[in-house]
């Protein structure tokens, strides 16, 4: 157990390192001069541009900059924003909680609604509830979040006035963005849970349980669902990445604070240190969640334990 956990940890670190290399090279080969997006080239002389470039180390070779970056990163220094000299690490740490709250709330929404609809759909297979749930699932997957976000604002904020359209202060501002983002995840979960429920329902042990006279409710929720949820767990790991990426759009639509908003602004402004910092943290979070999911199989599913 310890050995596998250690091995997984090691590969996780490799994944994070790999993502850093990737980001560093992408930013490096990207067209355009970051200096020119910080200062207006029409008002600043070439000499100033050159001195800025030297100051930021942009005139040095790739590997030297990368080694420097890793070195100072290990010391907890992620550099300063090119735009306003703000240190990157505190900036990300300040905005991380808002994004975590949004991701957690939308994951919960996705899981709850997705499982609920998925089970309903499987139990009422080929009846209207099933069709309705599947259409809702398809809708969730296909709707772009910026569109569903605006739709939610139109209905629940402008027309009904139930929830604020923007901001990130207080639980009320979390509801609409969490739903807007969670709908996508719910769409995936519905389809997955439905399929795996249908598989499990047809297994021998369900027949046995029924034959023994166990109530249908117990059969479905105690036994069938528990078995059907194992693939859903993997899904949640993968989905967390999807949701994290979704915050980029949803945080902008709902004018929330968060690292999704920071990275979209930073990308527009070619604020490289900030982009690298946010991607590093996102990679760490993604890897961490999936590591936890992997390890939790052992806890949840006795068969996995026995296999090892």
């Amino acid at each position: 157990m310890l050995r596998t956990a250690g091995l997984r940890l090691l590969t996780s670190l490799l994944v994070i390192f790999g993502s850093l290399v990737l980001v560093f090279s992408i930013v490096y080969v990207l067209p355009g001069d970051p200096i020119r997006s910080i200062v207006d080239p029409t008002t600043v002389s070439e000499e100033t541009l050159a001195s800025l470039r030297a100051e930021l180390g942009l005139d040095r070779p790739f590997y030297a900059r990368f080694a420097d970056y890793i070195g100072s990163m290990l010391r907890g220094d992620f550099g300063k924003s090119l735009l306003n000299d703000e240190p990157v690490l505190p900036k990300i740490l300040k905005h991380l909680p808002a994004t975590l709250a949004l991701t957690a709330a939308s994951s919960l929404f996705a899981a709850m609604v997705g499982i609920w609809l998925g089970v309903l759909s499987a139990i009422h297979r080929d009846r209207w509830i099933d069709s309705a749930a599947r259409v809702i699932g398809l809708f969730g997957i296909s709707m772009p979040t910026f569109w569903s976000g605006i739709l939610l604002i139109l209905i629940f904020s402008i027309t009904l006035g139930w929830f604020p359209a923007m901001g990130s202060d207080g639980w009320k501002t979390l509801v609409l963005p969490a739903i807007g983002l969670g709908i996508v995840g719910a769409g995936y979960v519905v389809r997955l849970v439905r399929n795996s429920m249908l598989e499990v329902i047809n297994e021998q042990f369900v027949l046995t349980l029924r034959a023994k006279g166990v109530s249908e409710r117990l059969v479905m929720y105690r036994h069938a669902l528990r078995n059907a949820l194992i693939p859903a767990l993997t899904m949640i790991g993968v989905l967390s990445g999807e949701l994290l990426a979704g915050t980029v759009v949803i945080e902008t639509v709902f004018a929330r604070q968060g690292i999704g908003r920071i990275i979209s602004d930073a990308l527009m402004a070619k604020d490289i240190p900030v982009v690298q910092g946010v991607i590093f943290f996102s990679a760490v979070m993604y890897v961490l969640i999936n590591l936890l999911v992997d390890l939790s199989y052992r806890v949840i599913d006795p068969r996995v334990r026995r296999l090892q």
Binding site: H95, A101, F109, M112, W116, S168, V175
Partner: peptide, 26 residues
Amino acid sequence: KIVRSLPVLALIFAIALAGCAQKPSS
């Protein structure tokens, strides 16, 4: 009843979470 109350539970969870997580950011 239980199945129907799931989304409501989801909302309550989300809300509770927001309450906790919101403090540091604001």
